[in-house]
């Protein structure tokens, strides 16, 4: 099972970046999705929004150049591209909830074949819950992608028929980019769009245990 050839995180980030078109307004979630920014070519005008109140986000500043009043949603120092802008939180979430953001890419604990997302809470009773903007992002963007390893470290599928972790949003994820395959999700179920090199549909069915359509 674990001997399946997997895309590296960098390869996966580059793969997601391929599908982000020129002119798109995009929010990259905290964690793995932030890697995607490294694979958006500068000549392609993709505008990154960060929910704490900036649009036109640029890369991290050089060490020593940090301005701690210019940070991203992960509270890391960033820069602003020429043409970028600042705004308050209600406007920021209006950009999401109002359907102005074209693409949002999020990490996940679990995703269901119909696009339900669980990514904010493990449900453990002693875990301190924290939700941040996850629920707004999940349901607000025109298209919500998930980027994650398909299996947990112990080999359990994170693509499931029904999420067992507390939900972030219902039917909100339209596409899953994983280290083993790209899979479209819809009310009709999961459909494999693309397999990682060396992975077969039978491998995928075996490791996930969920119903997977093809083509």
């Amino acid at each position: 099972m674990n001997d399946l050839p997997r895309l590296t995180r960098q390869q996966l980030a580059a793969r997601v970046a391929q599908d982000i078109p020129e002119g798109a307004y995009v929010n990259l979630g905290i964690g793995l999705p932030t890697l995607i920014a490294n694979y958006l070519p500068p000549e392609k005008d993709v505008i990154l929004q960060s929910e704490n109140g900036l649009i036109g986000m640029g890369p991290a500043p050089a060490p020593g150049e940090e301005d701690w009043e210019l940070i991203n949603a992960g509270k890391q120092a960033v820069t602003l591209r020429t043409g970028g802008a600042f705004f308050h939180h209600a406007d920021s979430f209006a950009m999401m909830r109002g359907g102005h953001i074209d693409i949002c890419v999020l990490g996940a604990f679990q995703v269901s074949v119909t696009g339900d997302l669980a990514n904010w809470h493990t449900g453990e009773p002693d875990a301190i819950p924290a939700v941040g903007g996850a629920m707004d992002l999940a349901i607000g963007a025109k298209r919500t992608f998930v980027m994650m390893d398909l299996l947990t470290r112990s080999g359990e599928s994170k693509l499931v028929e029904h999420c067992t972790y507390p939900l972030t949003g219902i039917g909100c994820v339209s596409r899953l980019y994983s280290d083993l395959a790209v899979i479209d999700l819809s009310p009709a179920g999961a459909r494999v769009v693309e397999l990682a090199p060396g992975v077969t549909i039978d491998d995928l069915r075996r490791v996930t245990g969920v119903t997977l359509g093809e083509g």
């Binding site: 929910e51 308050h88 939180h89 209600a90 920021s92 979430f93 999401m96 909830r97 002693d126 301190i128 819950p129 924290a130 939700v131 941040g132 903007g133 996850a134 629920m135 707004d136 607000g140």
Partner: peptide, 17 residues
């Protein structure tokens, strides 16, 4: 963890709205 504070958790955009 000590039960000394009450928490109302609100999604960030709902908090703003």
């Amino acid at each position: 963890r000590a039960g000394a504070i009450e928490l109302e958790l609100v999604p960030q955009g709902n908090l703003a709205a």
